[in-house]
Design a binder for these strands. Structure first.
Length: 275
DNA sequence: CCATGAACCTGGTCGC
DNA sequence: TGCGACCAGGTTCATG
């Protein structure tokens, strides 16, 4: 499910219910869900684990407890929400018990999602590039850093150590809007095009956040509430349909091992020796 | 340095 | 209706 806008949506949705509450325990229902700690590591003596803040870094949901953080990564099918009724959901993989509150449920059909316990953000920061909506991410930064690599463009944009938060849906949307073929080589893209690419990254992410992210195929999150950005998608999942700009039929190909949607008329391929 | 494919998992969809 | 093949919004690791 989640790329940056979806993770941000989850954070926005649960933050109000969590900040100020105390975590009194965590119960794994699928052992591997707790990646680097045991439930006891959390319940340090009688000390209460008060949630000071809930925020996002890259695709992680960060639950800030002051002395340490709980970082939740939803991977493909994870969800994080306050429990509704009293029965444990079918795909619940961990339960975070809150004092005087309904539990926080970590739900994940495919069991890829993970919960981490860290002292602070250092570990996560060290493996991630800048936030695309942060002030470090400028036109110049993008141009300079694309230049430094000779990578397949889509693969590079999906690489979290290069830039954090982008995933398969939004990369396809971004590359279509900026008119660049995903199989371009990063170092060969013109400065003007990189500028368009930068604008698309920020505009599409912001718009998706405003629309509470993308959900499709009745795959909802947020306790059944779903995001509306699916209505805004221009190319992802639109194979066989006409391109909204030129009418050419949209194709689905494989790039960097991922299903990739392109308009071969509108998206120019930048490669060494060409312009 | 870079690309590729497998692995981790379960469920939905499509074609026959 | 059944069944197998294939696909899935992510990440990591081994291999060439």
């Amino acid at each position: 499910m989640p790329e940056l806008p979806e993770v941000q949506t989850v954070v926005n949705h649960i933050r109000g219910d969590l900040v100020g509450k105390n975590i009194v325990g965590i119960i794994p229902l699928w052992g591997k869900s707790l990646h680097n700690f045991k439930p006891n590591d959390l319940s340090i003596k009688n000390k209460k684990n008060r949630i000071l803040d809930v925020r996002r870094r890259a695709k992680f949901i960060i639950i800030d407890l002051g002395d340490f953080i709980i970082a939740v990564h939803l991977r493909m099918t994870g969800k994080l929400y306050i429990q509704k009724g009293s029965s444990i959901p079918k795909y619940a993989r961990a339960i975070i018990k809150l004092e005087n509150s309904k539990d926080l449920i970590f739900d994940d059909i495919r069991k890829f999602g993970r919960i981490y316990l860290y002292k602070n953000l250092t570990e996560i920061d060290s493996k991630h590039g800048p936030e695309p909506l942060g002030k470090e991410f400028t036109h110049e930064w993008l141009y300079d850093n694309l230049k430094k690599k000779n990578r397949n463009l889509k693969a590079l944009l999906l690489d979290q150590s290069f830039i954090a938060g982008l995933g398969n849906i939004y990369v396809d949307e971004i590359l279509w809007e900026s008119g660049i073929h995903p199989n371009s080589i990063s170092s060969t893209i013109s400065k003007t095009k990189v500028s368009l690419l930068h604008n698309s990254i920020q505009n599409i992410l912001k718009k998706a956040i405003n629309n509470h992210g993308t959900t499709f195929m009745s795959f909802t999150f947020l306790n059944g509430r779903s995001g509306n950005y699916s209505n805004e998608l221009k190319i992802f999942g639109k194979q066989g349909e006409p391109c909204k700009t030129c009418g050419e039929l949209i194709k689905k190909i494989k790039v960097a091992g991922r299903g990739t949607h392109i308009c071969s008329t509108c998206q120019k391929k930048y490669r060494p020796g060409k312009k």
